[in-house]
């Protein structure tokens, strides 16, 4: 099964209205949330430059910033569920080349999420037009940078979620690690590193999601920061490279694990 086949299969799965799979609801919800945060951010910047932000838009901006970790958890649940239902066997029989299947999971989930995010964006746009009949002001560079940052962070988090699911083969464990790893474990590791030696503490700032803190930086003072801001000790390019390399390592480990381990009996 290649990525397009996986997407076809996922849509075939989702078409069954009676099944109401959890993944369907989550994909739509996270697609909607992400789209809302994107449009909300644009709206917020426009508002900060002109008129006061309506309460509902502020609400969307503040809650919408959780979209990247939700995308990660969703991705972990999507792939972890295949192990839970044992349908990974069905997939492995349809596409017995494991490397292709693993890449199919990674790219298929991304494509599916992106497709649904576009649908969600449309819905969000209509909602915002209803809320603000005057429409949105044109986006400014700061908004585009923020939106791109959130998008990269969401994709990275989602890919990490799929990778954890391929390694752990459990929805719950993968979802927990996807959430706790960046938000808690990296912070604890950094604290421990700082207490050992200052240079080790500096090095810990290059842990993938600590390095990516700038990507999820808030645009407005009212918006809470998603990731704990780190000291500005490394250039942005180095931080982004650390984020990319960290994700590549996790994905590599997942692909190797999936390729060379037998599939578990349900």
């Amino acid at each position: 099964m290649t990525a397009p086949a996986l997407v076809r299969l996922e849509f075939a799965r989702l078409r069954d209205r009676r099944s109401i799979p959890v993944s369907f609801i989550l994909v739509v919800v996270v697609g909607g949330i992400f789209s809302l945060v994107v449009t909300g951010l644009a709206s917020a910047v426009a508002d900060s430059q002109s008129v006061a932000v309506e309460e509902i838009v502020l609400f969307i901006i503040q809650r919408g910033s959780v979209a990247p970790p939700v995308a990660g958890v969703l991705a972990a649940l999507l792939v972890g569920a295949e192990f839970g239902d044992g349908t990974v066997f069905t997939h492995a029989l349809i596409q017995p080349r494991r490397l292709k299947l693993a890449l199919g999971y990674l790219t298929g989930s991304t494509l599916l999420g992106a497709a649904l995010a576009v649908i969600g964006a449309g819905v969000a746009l209509v909602l915002l037009l209803v809320i603000r009949p005057g429409g949105m002001l044109p986006p400014v560079p700061a908004v585009l940078i923020a939106v791109s940052g959130h998008l990269i962070l969401a994709v990275g988090w989602a890919v990490t979620g799929v990778a954890f699911a391929l390694i752990l083969r459990s929805s719950g464990a993968a979802a927990a690690l996807t959430l706790l790893g960046p938000l808690v474990i990296e912070g604890l590791l950094s604290t421990a590193a700082n207490s050992i030696a200052p240079w080790l503490g500096r090095l810990s700032d290059l842990l993938p999601f600590r390095a990516a803190a700038a990507l999820g930086a808030p645009l407005t003072p009212d918006q809470p920061a998603l990731l704990v801001p780190v000291p500005d000790t490394w250039p942005v390019g180095v931080q982004l490279a650390a984020f990319g390399i960290g994700i590549l390592i996790v994905v590599g480990a997942a692909v190797l694990s999936f390729r060379y381990r037998g599939l578990p009996q349900r």
Partner: peptide, 11 residues
Amino acid sequence: VYAYPKHTACR
């Protein structure tokens, strides 16, 4: 049979 439990046989 490894199937999504909410699906019908056809699905």
